[in-house]
Design a binder for these strands. Structure first.
Length: 259
DNA sequence: ATGGTCGTGGGACGA
């Protein structure tokens, strides 16, 4: 089963580029972030016509996550637990059943800039809630994954110019430590389980010719429970599509699981 | 050092 994560930066502007990529990459599941749409306006028919079941968790203007799946989705839940007052649409999870059941969690972690300020406080608080949900997933001792735009650069090698990010919410010690605490619970960073070294990015800013200079960062990640990591066959980043017409500023990252 | 670009929705704001 091939499972991808893709921050599309607006479904309205990305419908063509997204369907083109889906037709080529043929993921069984696509976890989408930044759909920037309310559920009623999400063009679900486009994807249903391609054979996908569609589950969305959107809001007006910003954020918003979705799951596309060629297999039926069960037990869909929307919203990260832990704060009933949090109205931002950043989390959706569901179970897909192949040879075995797999719990899928799609996430759009807060950016956190500017620092200091309430947005950075919200980011760190959200990551603490994520850690709690992650611990519960591990306790179930089943195949599960959490994938999406984490808005965290885990290591200096995950940025072309790490020195430019030292005061940014994506790379500050507290953000990186919070990410590492979650990994340290027992998760596998699927990409780093397979690929070592610098130069592997998932995001290039629209500004200042970042793509042409390959001035990127790796901020989209797959974290796998041990039972899921045991099923890992392959991983990849479809960086090439960043150079196409009307691209998102992110590119897809995917895993192939033996399930 | 500075300014540089997108998307949504139809004005600011987020990234």
């Amino acid at each position: 089963m091939k499972i991808a994560s893709f921050n599309i930066n607006g479904i309205k502007a990305r419908a063509q580029a997204l369907t083109d990529w889906l037709a080529e990459a043929q993921p069984d599941v696509a976890l989408l972030q930044e759909i920037k749409s309310v559920d009623e306006n999400f063009p679900r028919e486009i994807f249903e016509d391609m054979g996908y079941n569609v589950e969305t968790h959107g809001q007006k203007g910003f954020n918003g996550v979705a799951i596309l799946s060629k297999l039926p989705l069960e037990d869909v839940r929307r919203g990260l637990p832990g704060d009933a007052d949090d109205t931002q649409a950043r989390w959706i999870e569901a179970t897909v059943v192949g040879d075995r059941a797999l719990r899928l969690c799609g996430l759009y972690l807060p950016n956190g800039n500017p620092v200091p300020g309430p947005k950075y406080d919200y980011k760190l608080a959200w990551m603490e809630r994520l850690r709690a949900r992650a611990a519960d997933l591990l306790a179930a001792e089943e195949p599960a994954l959490m994938a999406g735009d984490y808005n965290v650069i885990p290591q200096p090698e995950d940025a072309k110019h790490p020195e430019k990010w030292t005061k940014d919410a994506l790379f500050l010690p507290d953000s990186r430590a919070a990410f590492q605490r979650i990994v340290n619970l027992g998760f596998t960073d699927a990409f780093r389980a397979r690929v070592q070294g610098p130069g592997h990015y998932t995001f290039w800013d629209y500004q200042a010719g970042s793509w042409n200079r390959n001035n990127g960062i790796r901020i989209d990640h797959f974290l796998l429970t041990p039972q899921c990591a045991d099923l890992l066959v392959d991983v990849g980043i479809d960086a090439e599509i960043r150079g196409r017409e009307k691209p998102s500023d992110h590119v897809p990252i995917w895993v192939e699981l033996d399930i």
